[in-house]
Design a binder for these strands. Structure first.
Lengths: 182, 182
DNA sequence: CGGAACATGTAATACGTTACATGATTAA
DNA sequence: TTAATCATGTAACGTATTACATGTTCCG
């Protein structure tokens, strides 16, 4: 099992303290948003499997007019397992960009389309930087601040590069593609 | 279907000209290495499915003492499909780093371990930059150069950030974790 | 003689997404 | 009244990875 999957990360989140599936989802949306995102459809099954493996234990708390809360805690063997994962050599970093992938085929797209595409990525990145900058201040741990700063820095560099080099692909796109595109 | 999957990308590669599965694999390793990687176990089934869908056609070339080459070409309907994919709004960019993910749990790792981890990512990034810089010169199309430069710039920014900020997490890691880790 | 490159494929497995299903509470 | 938040889950599907299976040629 890799570190970067729902199960391991649920376990990791539980090292910070007990939590429900719902709360774990929120952790994915905040602390872990930069490196992972998981939906309920991944989290709940993961927690069930972790329970079966004995890596987490589950205590139920009845609530009126709501489904009972299932509060999960990491067990000793769960912590053990997680630490072993943490000591394994990490896989290489991967950057996946659909936009950049599309731009490889820039010759097949009309000029205008390319410009819109680039405008949008820049915009996305800008928004991302703004969001991170806001949340960064609230972060308590050093490692979270480090991660936050990383995300900001890298995206700012990406924005700058795109602004300075977009002409390379914006000028090159041929008009002959429009017939095929339409 | 998304743009960023084996099938669409095989189709995309075939817009550059006919190719065998083996050659497509090489295209993934070179031109597309930054944005995707696919093994034979993904490519061959993909090509079969694309053939069934009528998006590619296949011509066989007998060879002595080797399995017959299957040379694939994109069909009209395949090109049509690909262009439609190309015109869809792209998904948001994702950056996945196991190392950064691990570093969120820096408090649970011994100081030394963290330093090694950071040294290794920086090293990986440096190697990546070197490889890209070499291959960049050979690139013919503008869009490939753009992508290449992007990869270099972003990684250089990442390296710089890590060098300047690693102390944030290197100093914070507690020694109390060592007992649990061992 | 060993390893890389050429050449294709299948089967089992792992992993995650999406849609579906249910239903109360609270704030705008 | 409408959307968001709280709260859990299943089933179907899409997608990719890994290991297995086979065999030749060429270079060092």
């Amino acid at each position: 099992m890799l570190l970067m999957n729902v199960k391991s990360l649920c376990l990791g989140i539980l090292t910070f303290g007990e939590a429900t599936g719902y709360e774990i989802k929120k952790a994915f949306e905040t602390q872990f948003s930069q490196v992972y995102d998981a939906g309920f459809g991944s989290i709940y099954p993961a927690l069930n499997q972790l329970t079966t493996s004995g890596y987490v234990s589950c205590r139920q708390e009845q609530q009126e007019k709501r489904p009972a809360k299932k509060i999960y805690s990491i067990t000793e063997s769960g912590l053990d397992f997680f630490l072993k994962e943490l000591h394994k050599a990490p896989a290489k970093d991967k950057f996946r960009s659909e936009t950049l992938t599309k731009l490889i085929f820039a010759d097949m797209l009309p000029r205008e389309n390319i410009s819109i595409l680039i405008d949008q990525v820049i915009d996305d990145y800008n928004n991302y930087v703004v969001d991170l900058s806001d949340s960064c201040c609230e972060k308590q741990s050093q490692s979270e601040k480090f991660l936050c700063g990383f995300g900001i820095t890298v995206r700012q560099a990406a924005i700058k590069y795109m602004q300075e080099n977009r002409h390379l692909i914006e000028s090159a796109s041929s008009s002959s593609s429009q017939q095929a595109a339409e």
